[in-house]
Design a binder for these strands. Sequence first.
DNA 1: TTGTATGCGTTATCAT
DNA 2: ATGATAACGCATACAA
Lengths: 349, 349
Amino acid sequence: MQTVALERAEDNMSVTIKDIAKKVGVAPSTVSRVINGNTVISRKTKDRILAVMEEMDYHPNSLARNFASGNTYAIGLVIDARDEQTFSNTFFNRSVYAIETVSQNFGYSLLITNDREEEKQSAVEKMVFEKKVDGIILPSTSAAPKLIRLLKKQKFPFIILGEPGIEKAETSWVDINNAAGSEMAVKSLAKTGYKKIAFIVENRTTVFSVKRMEGYQKGLSEVGYPFKEQYIQDCMENTDNAFLITKSLMDYLDAPDAILCGNNVIAYQVLRALKELGLSVPGQIGVMTFDNYPFAEYMDPPLSAVDVDTFSLGEQAATNLIRKIQNADYENQQTLISTKLLLRESTNK
Amino acid sequence: MQTVALERAEDNMSVTIKDIAKKVGVAPSTVSRVINGNTVISRKTKDRILAVMEEMDYHPNSLARNFASGNTYAIGLVIDARDEQTFSNTFFNRSVYAIETVSQNFGYSLLITNDREEEKQSAVEKMVFEKKVDGIILPSTSAAPKLIRLLKKQKFPFIILGEPGIEKAETSWVDINNAAGSEMAVKSLAKTGYKKIAFIVENRTTVFSVKRMEGYQKGLSEVGYPFKEQYIQDCMENTDNAFLITKSLMDYLDAPDAILCGNNVIAYQVLRALKELGLSVPGQIGVMTFDNYPFAEYMDPPLSAVDVDTFSLGEQAATNLIRKIQNADYENQQTLISTKLLLRESTNK
DNA sequence: TTGTATGCGTTATCAT
DNA sequence: ATGATAACGCATACAA
């Protein structure tokens, strides 16, 4: 009869396993077993229970479930709130999308927290102490030594998004293979015939930037090009600087014939500067950029790009984390996601 | 003594209010009352309890708290997964940032879910049925009649992000004042001296697009300009089309002298097309765009823009939702966020 | 102001 | 394969 369900609904009381049990004539524990499905139940009772659950419009109360089991079935994603930009970062957001997708597939909720300092403890520490999630994904910029220490001490599952500056071998992390990315960029440019390749980076300090510079140098040496200090230029976090940097780069006696850019905005400024100088791309100078979004292919000319698969990045991170949650002995793992080269007009010699 | 805390830690068992109570020599309920702070407790016992909590490194178990109280202290943000773009949408992401900020301030966690269809019920319905959150924020694109009906029937707190197509008056929602936005754009262009203003929209179907077109027409009539059908052009969701659209627009005998664009990418294509046609901006034709990110100010020339404050959007949504959660009688509310005009070179007559 | 007792809905540990 | 029952940690109604 639908009546019971309706009465419940009117009273605004939820149907519980007890109600199901009573109606079917079994013990609540039997109903619980059916729900969890990890015990063998006779086909007959199982079917009857399922039918009644359907009939009474039963939905397990996750609050009670979590409490009884001690799991939250949620993972936490930490956002580095020191710059609001994170959320505006398209690449990061593809990762978030991937993380959400994987979580949902595994039956986990995704909880997002900005890593701000509160009165005494950070929001992240709070998540851990109060058991709000079963594990966390941490951007490397938020992976402070203190936090890492806490997580390890509590044996709290976590994975770092981006190669960390510390404890590289004693933590799990996932990153883009930045070194390989710029190496393949240099090699491709060289193969096309460019001889003097400059690199304009966002900064020289972050791990990913350092890796990219290493890969750049490695690429040069592998194709037998000399490394020139002044061919690496630093925007110092202000991409507007790329405009003037380009102009002065092209002022050198020994000016480059190709420029590799750390991101799309830098590339945009480089193109503007070259245009002002009356230099044709790719005729007189080649331009290649990291990141294939959002404007790379709309630029004039369309930009060749080192494409970075941030979906995979998030996917790997989430998958690894959930494995760790479900298996405490799961070993630490470091993963590098390969980059891909998208050749477009801007490097067509 | 630290000993107890240490033993606990070694056993990997958490300190509970019972432990605190025993140590202090009070009843667990007294400890509970101190934690929740809504009962009057004698200064003396309160201080002793707080001291011991500190000493034993106590942290309330949110699983137990939530279960006992019946609240999750979490709000759900639904993402429209039908396009992965949502996450890549900078404007949307500013809203997310705001929502997270407000939630955290009120002590709520933020849970993000893609609105995909699962076996039988959507992820959103699941959140509601299984009491995973206390309320949800729903993009208007996900506000299907079926879901709205469910939410209302369950008296489940929710708020819609973007003016919904249905039940406008019987739901709470927050949106950008799109109509006023294009109206002020038209008026500003007219005031500058532009006489024939075209409008290239993403589509003609979504509520926000319809509102913008209404505002555009209202603006025209207020400044006494005639409305011409062919001055409204539709990209049909493919912004690349804006390139060809612009070319054919300028082919008319009665070609426009200003173009208002639905977003940055459209504006970029418009600029490209005008450049190819050898038309100077703003000399021969003015260009203005909705949205001030990310490239509007870097364009050549820098683009005037209707700036849309998506941070406020999210802030309002979250604030209203939490009020609703905390006060069941809180009345439905419809909020429109004002737009702002950023005048740059592209409309300098 | 504080203590006692009960219950929240489920899982898990014994039984049988 | 299933039943009975004890937890889980906290909030709260009722007593005192």
